[in-house]
Amino acid sequence: MNKNLFLKELKRNRKNLMIWSSIVIGFTFMVLAIFPYMAEMGEGITSLMESIPPEIGKAMGMDADTWSSILGFYSTYYGVYIIVLVSIFTTSTGATIISKEEKDHTSEFLLTRPISRKDIVVTKLISLFTLSLIIYGIQTTAAVIGMQLFAVTEVDWSVFIQMHLSGLVLILFFTTIGVLISMFVTPKKNFMGIVIGLTFGTYFLNAIGKSADAVSWISYFSPFNYLEITKDPTVAFNYLAACILLTLGVVMLILSNKIYGKKDIAG
C-alpha cells in the first residue's frame, strides 16, 4: 500500500462522503422519527394494510406486523432505501476510483511515478473500503441512536445486528461489482446510471420475484434474495450466502487487478 496515494484518495473523496453521509443520516432519522406517529395510529394502519393487495405488501417487505415495532418499520426502509443509498455511494466510488484517473488523463501522471500497478489497485481498494466502512459505520450509528430515541418498546438488538450484517455484505458486494464494471466500460461514460440501475434494479428483481409466484425464479438473480432484511427473529443469518457473495467479490477484485495490470494507458 502507498500511504501518499491512500491519503490523497481519502481527501479527494471526502466531500462526496460528507454529502452521502448527510443523506443517509437524514433519511435514517426521518424514518425512525416517523415511527411513533405510525405506532399511535396502530389499528387504523393495520386495517389499511389489510386492504393492500398482499403481492404489493410482499414486494415492499411489509405485512401487518410492520407497524407494530420500530424494527419492523425500520427494516422495510433499511432493506429498500438505505442499503441502496449507501450502495450507490460505495458502488459509484468503486466504479470511478480507478477509472477517474483515466477519464481525467491523470493515469499518465500516476503510472509514471515509482509505484507498481498492483500497488495502485491495492491502495485504491483499501481507500474504497475505508470509505465504504466509514459511511456504513456512520449510518449504523445513526440508526442505533435513532432507535433509542424513538423506540416505544424494547428493541431486539440481535435482530438489528443481523439486519445490518446482511446489509454490509450486500453493500460490499455491490461495491466490488462497481470496480469490475469500471474495467470494461469506457471511462468517458457516466457510471451513475449503471450504478443506480444495478442497485435498484436488483432490488426490484427480488421484489417482483417475491410478489408473484409465477416469476419467483427472477429473485435468484438478485443478491437481495439471499440476505433477507427482516425483523423476523426466526430467520437466521445466511452465512453461506454471505460467504459466496464475499468470495465472488474477492474474485471480481482479483480479476480487476489482472485487467488493470495489462491495460494500455491512452495518451
Partner: peptide, 9 residues
C-alpha cells in the same frame, strides 16, 4: 509529458 493533465482540484 507533451500534454499535461493533472488533478484539476
Amino acid at each position: 509529458p507533451s500534454e499535461v493533465h493533472y488533478y484539476d482540484e
